[in-house]
Simulated scan of single mutants.
Amino acid sequence: MKKFKLTDLLIFIVTAELVGALSALFSGDYSSFYTDIKPPPLLPPAWVFPVVWAVLYALMGISAYMIWQTDDRKTGRSAALKLYYIQLAVNFSWSILFFRFRLLGIAAAVAIILLLLVGVMILAFRNVKKTAARLNIPYFIWLIFASYLAAAVYILN
């Protein structure tokens, strides 16, 4: 295990948060989106989304740092980090597809793909460091809900 470095941890957290912030920026005015559609049941108020995502991106960054910090010889470390970055890229694209381009069907499919990717990532993280995997369980649960919302918006609209 490498020595703990606060700056490295902060880089991982800020990178994850930046992915979310840039995705939101490139998504355009998503607040008006929900006034233009028929909302699905259980749609939370708009303020919930940035709060939840900020926490989830922080947890993602912390967990990726924990994986990165493990011994280089640890089986699966490199593959786990690759899955992390792949899911982060897919996560980045979802908001842009959904809000900016309003490709609701594609966005619903991407949400399900992201859910599956995060599930595989959690399993890969578990093989390297169980705590890092556990930190992503709230993300996985949120993605189940987000996939429902994306599919429901697509079906209703």
Rank of each mutant, 00 (worst) to 15 (best):
I11G: 02
G28S: 01
E17Q: 11
V14M: 05
P50E: 05
S31A: 15
V52C: 09
S27N: 01
S31C: 11
P41L: 12
L42P: 11
I37R: 13
K38E: 13
L25N: 13
I37Q: 10
S32M: 04
A24H: 04
K38T: 15
F26N: 08
F33D: 08
F12P: 00
P45C: 13
L22W: 02
S32W: 03
F26D: 07
V51Y: 03
P44M: 05
L42V: 14
P44L: 08
F33R: 07
V48N: 11
A54C: 12
A16T: 00
S23G: 02
A16C: 04
T35A: 14
F26P: 07
V52W: 03
V19N: 02
K38P: 02
S23A: 03
L18T: 11
Y34H: 06
E17N: 09
I13N: 02
F26V: 04
K38F: 10
S27I: 05
L42A: 12
A54Q: 10
V51P: 03
Y30P: 10
K38G: 07
G20F: 00
I37M: 14
K38R: 15
T15W: 00
W53N: 01
V19K: 01
F49H: 12
I37K: 13
F12L: 00
L25P: 05
S27G: 14
T15Y: 05
Y30T: 14
L42C: 12
T35N: 14
S31G: 08
W53Q: 04
I13S: 03
L22K: 01
S32Q: 14
P41T: 09
W47L: 15
V52L: 10
L22A: 02
A46F: 10
P40W: 06
A21Y: 07
L18S: 10
G28H: 01
V51C: 00
W53R: 05
F49D: 09
V55A: 10
S32C: 03
F33G: 06
A54D: 09
V52Y: 08
I13Y: 01
F33K: 10
V19E: 06
P50C: 02
L42H: 12
L43S: 11
P41G: 08
V51H: 04
V52P: 06
W47Q: 13
F12T: 00
V55T: 08
P40I: 09
F49M: 07
P39I: 12
V14P: 02
Y30E: 10
P45I: 14
P40H: 11
W47N: 15
G20S: 00
F49G: 09
A16K: 01
L25M: 13
Y30R: 13
I11S: 04
W53T: 00
